[in-house]
Nucleic acid binder design. Structure first.
Lengths: 200, 200
DNA sequence: ACGAGATGGTACATTGATGTTCCACTTTGG
DNA sequence: CCAAAGTGGAACATCAATGTACCATCTCGT
């Protein structure tokens, strides 16, 4: 039953449930400690180290697969946010919720050192950044978002707050259910009260 | 001239200018790539690898020294921000400026994996977090800051935005001179315009 | 000029992660 | 029930980073 693996994404046989297990566990482990050994990854996946190598010959291959997976998920999240529809602020809120729901997968991209200056990754990142900047720009044109901050900075702030939300959830500082709402409120409205009384 | 090194901070002899060079270079290199080899660090510091080992016998010792240095700098930054004086919003703004000025040193603390669950580090981090939370709480009590967001989350957001500002400066997305102002504006006021018109 | 201290380089031993090979065992599909 | 596929473990070989030892050189202060 020579199954040509590698290209198609369809969850074919029962055998590549193993692949999913590896991808998921590896993302989680490496997002939390990028220096974890492949033995750690294998153990977290509930698989022998040999089996891990059978699916991904070397660490670089594994990391690349994780990165592709993560980017794919990120693009799906962006797509699901329907950034072109409705008020930009609502769209941005949807985006934050989706991105925070990515959890591991987004954080992995930020923390894996070997992805730092990978051309493939840089290209993919540039693509998603462009989309987000487009949304910001739309909000600025419509007058919803301030124009005093560059769109590129706001896009960076989005990533930072998503990351911060993950850390806060991870450390138990903030309940998982609240993180996205807090991040969105912070980014959109800031932390000052509307009237800014601050009476002495 | 038996100089008891290790405890006093005074820039004693001309020989421990080397120590400074190592600390600074190592912080920069490791903040950008936590997996950099000691050879990389030595080269960046302009010293031989042997000399590096003479000052810091092993990697763990070096990392610990960097962490202490970074925490010390962070505490100085917090002190310089005089968080108890004046409106909380101004104090928070000062804090952001100071923390972003820390550059490398703050980011190193976030990115070095081996510091992740170090008890010493956790304790020091808890201390600074407590101070920041105190400031936030003061702002909330006075009515300057919203009380709809937990102080702990806002403190986390501060760290995230400082980190984001560093990344943005590092990648050239934002001019160094503007980063702190942008971060402060984002955190305090958010990105929505005051009226929130959003006319179609 | 001289000696102590500091430095850089070479060379070497050690170590832990990595990647590979081989084999016995289990599961699965027909 | 049987063959094929999948799996785990043990046993390697390799390699890069690390840490150490030694020595030649340099630079001070006196």
């Amino acid at each position: 039953m020579k199954v040509r693996e590698g290209i198609d994404t369809t969850p074919r046989g029962p055998a590549d449930r193993t692949r999913r297990a590896i991808i998921n566990a590896a993302t989680g482990v490496l997002a939390r400690d990028s220096t974890a050994s492949l033995g750690d990854v294998a153990r977290a996946a509930g698989v022998g180290r040999t089996t891990l190598h059978r699916y991904y010959p070397d660490r670089a291959t594994l990391v690349r697969a994780l990165a592709e997976e993560a980017f794919h998920a990120t693009e799906l999240a962006i797509g699901a946010s329907t950034l072109d529809e409705g008020p930009a602020s609502d769209a941005l809120r949807r985006l934050l919720y989706e991105m925070i729901a990515l959890g591991d997968r987004f954080v992995f991209l930020l923390r894996e050192p070997s992805l730092a200056d990978d051309p493939q990754v840089d290209a993919a990142e540039a693509r998603t950044t462009a989309v987000i900047c487009g949304l910001i720009a739309r909000g600025q044109s419509s007058g919803e978002f301030t124009s005093e901050l560059p769109a590129a900075w706001i896009a960076e702030a989005v990533g930072s707050l998503v990351y911060g939300a993950w850390v806060a959830m991870e450390s138990g500082t903030v309940p998982r259910a609240d993180a996205a709402r807090f991040a969105a409120a912070t980014l959109l409205g800031g932390i000052l009260t509307s009237d800014g009384s601050g009476a002495t």
